[in-house]
C-alpha cells in the first residue's frame, strides 16, 4: 500500500506539472497546447543529449553526475521553453481570441513535426537516463523505492509551490493573472497581452520539458512516452478545473493515486477508473472540482 501511494504521488506530481502547463495557456489565451506530450518526450531526449554531450566534452568524471543531470534538466526546460515561442507564434497567435478551434489542429500538427524531427535524430528505441542519485532500491518494510521517485516528488512539489508563489508575488505572475481574469482590461492597464501569452507558452513548454527529464530515469525515455502523460495531465486539469492552478495540481495528485491504488486490485482497470473519475467529476461539476465558469464573448 505504501509503495502504491508513493508511486502514485510521484507520477501524480508529474501529471500536476503538465496540468499546470495546460492551466497557464488556457487562462491566458483560451487555448491548449495539444503537443504537450511531444514536448515531454522531446524534453527527455534533450536531457539525454545534454548528458551525452557534456560527458563527451568534460569527461565522465569531471563533475559529479548530479550536476550533469541538473544541467540536463535546465537545458531541457530552456530548449523546450524556447520552442514554445514558435509554437505560440505559428500555431496559436493566428487563432487565439478568434472563434473556431483551428488551434487544436495547429498544435497537434506542431507536435507531429517536433516528434518526427526528434525521431530522425534519436530513433525509436527506449533509452534510460541514469538517475542522479543512483538506481539502488531503498526499503521501508516490504515496500521498495528508487531515489528518483523521491527526487521527482520533492522537485515537482517544490516547482508547483514556486509557481504558486510566483503567480501571486511577481510582476509577470500578476500580469498573467490579470490577463487570465480579463484580457481587455489588462491591455487597457498597459499590460503587453501578446507578450504575456507568449510567456505562458514558454512556461508551459518548459514545464513539459522539465517533466520529461524528471520521469526519464523512472519510465525510460521514448519519443512516444509523452502522449499518455499529457493525456493524464489534461485529465488532471479537467478534474481539478482548468482555470484553477491549485486545482490542476490537486487533480494531478488525485489521478496518480487513483491509478496506483486501482492497480493494487487490477492493473487493467487503471485507465478505466481514471476516465470514469473524469466523467463523474464532469457530470457533477462541469468546470472541475475547483474551476469556475469562463464566459467567452463571441
Amino acid at each position: 500500500m505504501l509503495q502504491a501511494i508513493i508511486g502514485g504521488l510521484t507520477l501524480g506530481s508529474v501529471y500536476a506539472l503538465i496540468a499546470l502547463g495546460f492551466n497557464l495557456t488556457y487562462t491566458t489565451t483560451r487555448t491548449l497546447n495539444f503537443a504537450q506530450g511531444d514536448f515531454v518526450s522531446v524534453g527527455a531526449f534533450v536531457g539525454l543529449g545534454t548528458v551525452g554531450v557534456l560527458t563527451a566534452a568534460l569527461g565522465a568524471d569531471a563533475v559529479g553526475y548530479v550536476w550533469l543531470y541538473a544541467l540536463a534538466a535546465v537545458a531541457a526546460a530552456l530548449v523546450m521553453g524556447v520552442l514554445g515561442l514558435p509554437l505560440y507564434l505559428a500555431a496559436i497567435r493566428p487563432f487565439a481570441g478568434k472563434p473556431g478551434m483551428s488551434w487544436v489542429v495547429s498544435t497537434i500538427g506542431f507536435g507531429i513535426v517536433l516528434q518526427s524531427a526528434a525521431l530522425s535524430v534519436w530513433g525509436l528505441g527506449a533509452r534510460m537516463l541514469p538517475a542522479p542519485f543512483g538506481d539502488e532500491v531503498f526499503r521501508i518494510g516490504e515496500a521498495g523505492f528508487r531515489s528518483q521517485e523521491l527526487v521527482v516528488l520533492v522537485l515537482a512539489v517544490a516547482i508547483l509551490g514556486a509557481f504558486d508563489v510566483a503567480m501571486r508575488r511577481t510582476a509577470i505572475g500578476r500580469c498573467m493573472r490579470a490577463v487570465a481574469l480579463n484580457r481587455d482590461a489588462a491591455a487597457l492597464m498597459g499590460i503587453d497581452v501578446p507578450r504575456v501569452m507568449a510567456m505562458a507558452f514558454l512556461a508551459s513548454s518548459a514545464l513539459a520539458g522539465l517533466s520529461g527529464v524528471l520521469v526519464a530515469p523512472i519510465l525510460s525515455a521514448s519519443l512516444f512516452m509523452g502522449v499518455i502523460i499529457a493525456l493524464k495531465g489534461f485529465s488532471a486539469a479537467i478534474i481539478g478545473g482548468l482555470t484553477n492552478p491549485r486545482g490542476c495540481m490537486a487533480g494531478g495528485l488525485l489521478i496518480g493515486l487513483v491509478e496506483s491504488l486501482t492497480a493494487l486490485w487490477s492493473a487493467q482497470w487503471r485507465e478505466i477508473m481514471v476516465f470514469l473519475l473524469v466523467i463523474l467529476v464532469l457530470a457533477m461539476a462541469p468546470n472541475g472540482l475547483f474551476g469556475r465558469k469562463l464566459v467567452e464573448k463571441v
Binding site: Q3, A4, G7, F224, M225, I228, L264, A267, Q268
Partner: peptide, 11 residues
C-alpha cells in the same frame, strides 16, 4: 497482464 507502456508492475 500489463500494458506495453506500463513501467511499474509491482502490483
Amino acid at each position: 497482464k500489463f500494458d506495453a507502456r506500463d513501467t511499474d508492475m509491482t502490483s
